[in-house]
């Protein structure tokens, strides 16, 4: 959740770049709704059926609480035409792309 706190805090800088931040997890709609309430400037996506996570091959099996599946921390930048412009995979489960690095990637990769 720490990464969401930082992304929410910097939301104005994403808006300035005409970009939205969509955050995805394999949790259900109820959890997504709670998270959405906590982070109103982010767009929460519930992927409890794994439709999105499996399409991107991001499922980390049995890595969640109680042995459930979860997503591997990964960030994609997609431009307005729906084309992928950046792929970032964390080198470790405890490392995340910082908002500064994400904004820099946007400045470099998105027009």
């Amino acid at each position: 959740m720490t990464e969401l706190v930082e992304l929410e805090r910097r939301h104005a800088e994403f808006a300035k770049r005409n970009a939205r931040v969509i955050v995805v997890s394999v949790e259900g709609v109820d959890d997504a709704r709670k998270t959405q309430a906590d982070f109103p400037h982010l767009t929460l996506v519930s992927d409890d059926a794994h439709g999105l996570s499996e399409a991107a091959e991001l499922i980390h099996p049995h890595a969640g609480p109680n042995g459930g599946d979860t997503d591997v921390p990964t960030t994609f930048l997609v431009d307005r035409a729906g084309i992928v412009r950046c792929v970032y995979r964390s080198p470790s489960v405890i490392e995340r792309l910082s908002p500064d690095a994400l904004l820099k990637a946007m400045d470099q990769r998105l027009r």
Binding site: V21, I22, D31, D71, P73, L77, V78, R80, L102
Partner: peptide, 16 residues
Amino acid sequence: LAGDQHTAMVFFRGRW
């Protein structure tokens, strides 16, 4: 994903 805005799609591990 296509539209007026660019998208940063962040996959996170959940609320836990």
